[in-house]
Design a protein around this nucleic acid. Structure first.
Lengths: 211, 211
DNA sequence: GTGCATCCGTGCACGGCGTGCACGATGTCC
DNA sequence: GGACATCGTGCACGCCGTGCACGGATGCAC
């Protein structure tokens, strides 16, 4: 089974995809090796063997290049949600979608995408300069998720759909943040705990937050 | 009754506060007059009659200067929440805090702060470059709100407090966004509708989101 | 007030950023 | 294989954000 994105058609399209991916991974590699603050657009371009100007044809800045990896994860959640059977309630489908993505999304790549995503989240925690852009990425996916929820309910995009989408991604952000907080600098924090806390958070949302 | 911030003591402190406020309002004035994309750090500094270098002593960039106005609103919500009687449930106190801030927060200033805040929110809708920073401002206040919730419950800062804080600000963001969306370019959209939708959103959160 | 320590505003310089533009190279279509 | 669209690249420009050093204003103790 192929990834979430459709297969490219012509050679031109394939090369563009390859260049974009090369830049994205070059940015991640440099940030992990030298630290986020020492990454410049020029270095990323050199690492990917293209011109500085070309880098800016693909990304608006180093932050966007770094967070492109994180964006893939958020997009995957939306895609998985759309693939869930329509009989499930919204929150049930959302919880399942999140857990599927965490488990590697049935990619055969030894969950390489998942490891990269966790690495990016760690970078963000240490480099506050990336936080605004990450939140922006999530906000963009919130809109997509709200549209998907509205389709599922066969209702127009209303307050409920938007609220669900925002709340779901918000909960995900809180859970991941707390998970990374406790994990410190360990190589691989326990995944079971993460899964359990995701389930807990969604249960709170479903049952009502008031106390 | 004085504003949320404590009164300044020495002359030095007062001057700093005045300079910061002057820069903040200068930024807002320029953005409203010339458009966000035509605002530069140098113009803001000139408008406030200080050097460019001085501007950067107060704000890290034009976005932070513009969003300082919005940050005041978010901080006010947290402050009002802390002032609510501890007997109220978390969501009840939060809803009341939000509505209090919307009603001008008992400032005698003819709700000038409120008008400025709405103006900034309009700017953000038209200028996507401000969105990341706005979300970052909200995220910072989420932490403060989570701490306040934890204190109220006399519990350590746990998942519930964080989830409540994130969800509350998320709901507020969604409601405000939809409100501005429908209002278009009207001078002053109906406030009653906004109040009602805030109440609706908090009711959804309290009752549980699942469908 | 006088002296002193501290803090603040300012100018300068520098490297990085993001973009408009023009031109040559490469893929695409018939 | 020729016309056309698209992409990569170099160049130039203005803006950004910061380290540094210096002079003036402020606060404090006496």
């Amino acid at each position: 089974m192929m990834s979430v994105v459709a297969a490219p058609a012509g050679r031109r399209e394939r090369k563009k995809l390859a260049t974009r991916a090369a830049l994205r991974r070059a940015a991640l590699r440099l940030a992990l090796r030298d630290g986020v603050e020492n990454v410049t657009a020029e270095r990323i371009a050199d690492e990917a063997d293209v011109a500085r100007r070309t880098f800016f044809n693909y990304f608006s800045g180093k932050e966007e290049a770094l967070l492109a990896t994180a964006a893939l994860g958020a997009e995957a959640v939306v895609a998985r949600f759309r693939a869930r059977p329509p009989r499930e309630s919204v929150l049930t489908a959302l919880r399942a979608a999140v857990l599927e993505v965490m488990d590697g999304g049935s990619d055969g790549d030894d969950d390489l995408a998942g490891r990269e995503h966790v690495a990016v989240l760690r970078l963000i925690r240490r480099a506050p300069s990336l936080l605004p852009q990450q939140l922006s990425v999530l906000a963009a996916q919130e809109r997509a998720l709200a549209a998907a929820i509205a389709e599922r309910l066969e209702l127009p995009d209303d307050a409920y759909a938007r609220l669900c989408a925002t709340t779901a991604f918000g909960a995900l952000r809180v859970v991941l943040d707390r998970w990374l907080e406790r994990a410190g600098d360990d190589v691989t924090p326990p995944l079971d705990v993460l899964r359990a806390e995701v389930a807990d958070a969604f249960a709170m949302l479903a049952g009502g937050l008031d106390r």
